[in-house]
Design a protein around this nucleic acid. Structure first.
Lengths: 179, 179
DNA sequence: GAGCAGGTGAACACTCATGTTCACAACGGT
DNA sequence: ACCGTTGTGAACATGAGTGTTCACCTGCTC
């Protein structure tokens, strides 16, 4: 049941980062006292939500074979499915002020950066820095999550949208005006 | 001098959306009373900052000839230069709850959406919805602003990065694995 | 039934952002 | 020198979120 509490907290805090603890408790169908017993302070709750998301990413990361050439496609597809839990990590303001969290987030980026660097020998452009490509991927993910939450994009369409847009761009195949 | 106040408020609130009015006033080198005299309430300040950003966009929008085929490139290049003032519009939480602001934001999107739809006849892909392409552009902008604020990206490089990435994608030219 | 773990609402004190007012200082125009 | 404007710090009341405690209830095991 504590799991459901964290998930509810995730979506409530994501929708309104200034939501009070009372709001979170009510949304989770739980007393504010109970919430306080699990997470003695607001900072503790936020940290728990973030760590939960990081655990989720770790579990996904383990399932991806980073040695395969289509590892990125696999990773993106799996990350899209995670939705708000991970979006929280990239969106919640002030999260990077927690040193421990910042460390975990950077550690999460590292293998992907390595993968990108390696693939820049084959299927990825060499004229862009790896970090820019990584953040472009994140931007695509965030884009998809937002569209899904607004009901504009079907969750099952999302991976294809993100991958095709990030990899091939929005220009039509014929128009190659690389400047 | 009021202009400088709004710009300071923009960057302070962007860095920390929960910053107190005292923080804003101090950052602007002005008394909290003075701030209150100009903007009687916090909501009024936020609205003023947002409207300032929208005015800025309007003034840019007027300079772009939406009939030209390279209007998008022109628009993006100009928007990148605006930086945090516009980033505020896309980032600040709860901004869309103000009906008047939401209207202005949608009105801002409209001509760009029309342009995208028109260009889908020529240089833009037809197999993606116009709104998706629009949001991909925004995501690229946001990406660049963030990289600039972290000092990773030179402002003068930004337009090229955004345009080439959004239009052509991150895949190397040879790898055309359109699924 | 006794005991215990877990959950709950009520209540309290405390902090802090906020809105508001007021008296005072600086400055420019007349 | 006078006065309106503009900015300033100090002070105050208010409200909301927060952390904390306590008494009470429920369901479970022994």
């Amino acid at each position: 049941m504590s799991v459901h509490l964290l998930q509810t907290a995730t979506s409530v805090l994501l929708k309104d980062p200034t939501a009070s603890l009372g709001d979170v408790a009510r949304a989770a169908g739980v007393g504010r006292t109970t919430l306080h017993k699990r997470f003695p302070t607001r900072a503790a709750l936020v940290r728990a939500v973030a760590n939960d998301a990081l655990d989720l990413i770790d579990s996904v990361s383990c399932q991806v074979d980073f040695d395969r050439d289509d590892a990125i496609e696999d990773l993106i597809t799996r990350l899209v499915a995670l939705g708000p839990r991970v979006e929280f990590l990239l969106r919640f303001p002030g999260l990077e002020r927690d040193a421990e969290l910042r460390t975990r987030i950077e550690a999460m980026d590292e293998p992907v950066l390595d993968l990108i660097t390696r693939l820049q020998g084959t299927k990825l452009r060499r004229d862009l820095p790896a970090w820019w490509i990584l953040h472009t991927l994140y931007a695509g993910l965030f884009n998809a999550w937002e569209a899904i939450s607004y009901g504009r994009l079907a969750p099952l369409d999302a991976p294809r949208f993100v991958l095709t847009t990030v990899f091939e761009g929005v220009a039509s195949a014929g128009a190659t005006d690389r400047t």
